[in-house]
């Protein structure tokens, strides 16, 4: 199976994401923001970084990249999409996911190993985990505070669409400790911490991030 990894100008984590895809057992396919071509991929990852320099708002300009028009269309038809960090911000700006990511409540850029709890293991990207499983993966962002109105928050909670929560002290002021969410259909997932940096204990705090990249294989086999 082929998983596209999009590179925008300013994307940083496309190589790690592609490596994680390959280690997970799929074939990573490089996609370029300016190409209106998804190269027949079965799923798409929007990696982390600072696309378009985070100008205006994080993800606000990337949303209008030619490749995003196709991603939005394909996501609407059920194609699995995972946005990590900046990718999560792009998905919110694209309105594929509700809410927005705003400046960390303490204003500092955070970079640390963060424990999260998987709270929904039924999405296209989380079936390799047990519900309630705790994993430790890197968290590194300046705008990671998940915000939305009360009504949206109640919907996310009632529909089980919070897929991961921070464990312990709230690192960035996210409402209800939200680290990741999914759409109604469960094919689009946004996650603030970085599973692609935790697929090998040699270079990451654990190999527990790999679960996101093996889950997608399960989703495709079904």
């Amino acid at each position: 199976m082929r998983i596209g990894v999009i590179t925008f100008p300013g994307t940083l984590d496309d190589r790690d994401a592609a490596r994680a895809v390959n280690v997970g057992g799929a074939e990573a396919v490089a996609l370029w923001h300016a190409d209106a071509d998804l190269k027949k991929v079965d799923a798409v990852i929007l990696p982390g970084g600072f696309s378009y320099g985070d100008y205006l708002r994080c993800g606000a300009i990337s949303r209008f990249a030619p490749v995003m028009k196709l991603v939005i269309e394909a996501a609407g038809k059920g194609m699995p999409v995972l946005g990590i960090c900046n990718g999560f911000q792009v998905l919110c700006e694209s309105h594929l996911l509700p809410g927005a990511l705003t400046r960390n409540s303490d204003l500092h850029f955070l970079c640390r190993d963060q424990e999260i709890e998987i709270t929904n293991n039924t999405t296209a990207w989380t079936t390799s985990f047990a519900e309630g499983e705790r994993i430790t993966i890197p968290l590194k962002n300046g705008e990671g505070s998940f915000q939305c109105d009360d009504q949206t928050l109640a919907r996310l909670e009632n529909e089980g669409r919070v897929i991961a929560r921070y464990v312990g002290v709230n690192p960035n002021g996210s409402r209800n400790l939200i680290a990741g969410i999914t759409n109604e259909r469960g094919n689009v997932v946004g996650l603030m911490p970085h599973p692609e940096h935790a697929i090998d204990p040699l270079t990451g705090p654990s190999a527990q991030g790999l679960g996101f990249f093996t889950s997608i294989l399960n989703a495709m086999v079904k």
Binding site: T102, R103, S105, L107, S145, Q147, D149
Partner: peptide
């Protein structure tokens, strides 16, 4: 402007 209900850490600082 940020909506009133949205936390503004920069304004607070």
């Amino acid at each position: 402007m940020l909506k009133p209900e949205i936390l503004d850490p920069q304004g607070n600082a």
